[in-house]
Each structure stands twice: as structure tokens, then as C-alpha cells.
């Protein structure tokens, strides 16, 4: 009796682990493929059957991205960093006071919350075309400012939503105490609340950074020659007619994956709440 029970339990454990292993293989394989492709020699890119475990590696494709002149990835990399960083700073700066007032005074009540969520649901393509026309009149197409503003449409609501959840856990006594001590509310917010909430703010900031970094549709439509990001470089390289651009395309994808990868490792703990919009009530 006991041995049979143990046997079925073992068997079940084996099945579960096998299932998880298959899951891991599927989850990791595309990542593995991109990374190895970026280090493979060009001849291994187009072989039948494909080379799963390349024996020799090369840094050629990365070299082409940086050292040589045909594909210069530096401006693209710079644009990605500048845009994501500006967008992050801008969104966080306007979202902190908004989230503070919305959660502390419940300004606008449920309606404000509904509006924020709906803002997040809008398909970006709806706004892209009219924005393109407006930007044309204001000469904002192909500028950092135009793109940063466009990113804030979707980042702003996300940041406010996340920050509101954090502010709701913040003890109001601390703010009240400093108000009694004679500081203005803004001073209390900047000097007392923000330092204490720094870890949460950093997490929200990183989410904003990533949303900017991963954007495709805005830079595709509102961007131009001077504001091309890494994502655009990937697309251009992969759509290029020559087989020679296959390796650099993979290397660009790896470059593009790196920052999100590192940042997500830091944010593991906040991933679920962040991805589910700070825990929509369910």
C-alpha cells in the first residue's frame, strides 16, 4: 500500500518535472537562437539543417555594428537611451504629484480611476494618425520632444496607476506631521515622501523606461531619420535584401534585449503587480 502510494507520487513528480522541462525548452529556445545567431558565422545562418550547436563563434556581427561604417548602430543606441530616459524622467516627474493627490484626496473618485484605465486600453494606432497630422503642423515629427510626449500617453496612466497603489500604503501621519511642523505640502512631498518611497518610484521609473525602450509604433510613425531607435534598426536590417545583414540583425536584437533583461532581473519581485497594473481589483 505505502510503496504503491510512493510509486504513484514519484511518477507524478517525474511527469510534472518533464512537463516543466519542455516548457523551459520552449520558453528559452528563441532567446538561445537569437543569441547564438548573433555569434555564428554567416555560413551557419543558412545551412540545412540549421546549426543548433555552432562549434565556432565570431564577434564579426557586433564588430560590424560598431567598428565599421556600413551599419553604424551607435546613433540608434543613443536615440533609444535618450528617448527612454527622457520619457522616464518626464513621466515620473508629472505622475508623482498626480498620484499623490489622487490617492490622498481621492480627487475625481472612481471616475478618475476609470479614465486612467481606459487611457491604457486605447489602441495606440487610433492616436497615431491624428498625432502625425498635428505634429506636422507643429514641426514635432522626428523630434525627441514629440516622441516623449507621445510615450507619456500610455506611460502616464501606467505610472499613476502603479504609484497610486504605493501611495495608498504610505502612512499619512508622516505627511501630517511635517505639515504641522510648518512645511508646505509640496515640500513635504519632495523632502519626506519621495525619499521614503524611493524604491517604489525606482520600480515605476524602470517600467516607464522599458515601455519607451520597447516602443515600435510611435517611432515608426512619428519618428524619422534623427530619432530612429534600436527597434527600427532591427526591422531595417532584417528587411534588408542582403543575407549579410542577418547576423547584424541578430546582434542588434541582443543589444535591444540586454537593458530589459538586466532591469527585469532587478524587478523580479515587482513583476506581477507591475504587469497586472498594480493589482487591478479582481
Amino acid at each position: 500500500m505505502t510503496s504503491r502510494y510512493l510509486f504513484t507520487r514519484r511518477l507524478r513528480a517525474v511527469v510534472v518535472y518533464a512537463f516543466l522541462c519542455v516548457g523551459i525548452l520552449v520558453a528559452v529556445f528563441p532567446f538561445y537562437w537569437i543569441v547564438t545567431t548573433s555569434f555564428k558565422y554567416s555560413r551557419d545562418h543558412f545551412s540545412k539543417p540549421p546549426v543548433y550547436f555552432p562549434t565556432d563563434y565570431t564577434l564579426d556581427h557586433y564588430d560590424r555594428l560598431f567598428a565599421r561604417t556600413d551599419v553604424n548602430a551607435l546613433p540608434f543606441l543613443k536615440n533609444s537611451f535618450v528617448l527612454s530616459t527622457f520619457n522616464m524622467v518626464f513621466v515620473v516627474a508629472i505622475s508623482i504629484p498626480a498620484a499623490y493627490a489622487l490617492s490622498r484626496y481621492r480627487l475625481g473618485g472612481d471616475k478618475a480611476r476609470f479614465a486612467i484605465l481606459t487611457g491604457r486600453m486605447l489602441p495606440p494606432v487610433i492616436l497615431v494618425l491624428p498625432l502625425f497630422l498635428i505634429y506636422r503642423n507643429l514641426n514635432l515629427n522626428n523630434t525627441y520632444l514629440g516622441l516623449v510626449l507621445a510615450y507619456s500617453i500610455f506611460n502616464g496612466p501606467l505610472a499613476v496607476w502603479l504609484l497610486m497603489a504605493f501611495f495608498e500604503d504610505f502612512p499619512t501621519e508622516i505627511i501630517d506631521a511635517s505639515l504641522v511642523d510648518g512645511s508646505t505640502e509640496l515640500q513635504a512631498l519632495v523632502r519626506i515622501v519621495m525619499p521614503l518611497m524611493a524604491p517604489s518610484i525606482v520600480v515605476v521609473a524602470l517600467f516607464c523606461f522599458l515601455t519607451g525602450w520597447n516602443d515600435l509604433i510611435f517611432v515608426l510613425t512619428l519618428g524619422g531619420r534623427e530619432t530612429q531607435t534600436l527597434n527600427m534598426l532591427m526591422v531595417n536590417l532584417l528587411n534588408a535584401p542582403s543575407n549579410e545583414s542577418f547576423g547584424p540583425a541578430a546582434a542588434t536584437v541582443v543589444l535591444g534585449i540586454l537593458p530589459p533583461f538586466v532591469l527585469t532581473l532587478f524587478m523580479q519581485r515587482y513583476l506581477v503587480s507591475g504587469l497586472s497594473l498594480g493589482g487591478v481589483k479582481g
Binding site: I24, F31, T37, H45, N214, L238, A250, I257
Partner: peptide, 30 residues
């Protein structure tokens, strides 16, 4: 195991698209 299973989350939609473009190549993709 959870960390390995969640690798796709760390990869942007664009990079996902690129990866599958390469993986699904009819003659050379794995």
C-alpha cells in the same frame, strides 16, 4: 524554474517578432 519560464517576459515584442522571423524561416529556420 519560474525564472527560466519567464524569460519571454523580459524580451520586448519587437525582439520576439525578430526571433520568430528567424526561427520560422521556411528553409533555414529551426
Amino acid at each position: 524554474i519560474v525564472a527560466l519560464l519567464t524569460v519571454p517576459i523580459m524580451i520586448s515584442t519587437s525582439a520576439t517578432g525578430m526571433a520568430f522571423r528567424m526561427i520560422m524561416l521556411p528553409e533555414y529556420g529551426p
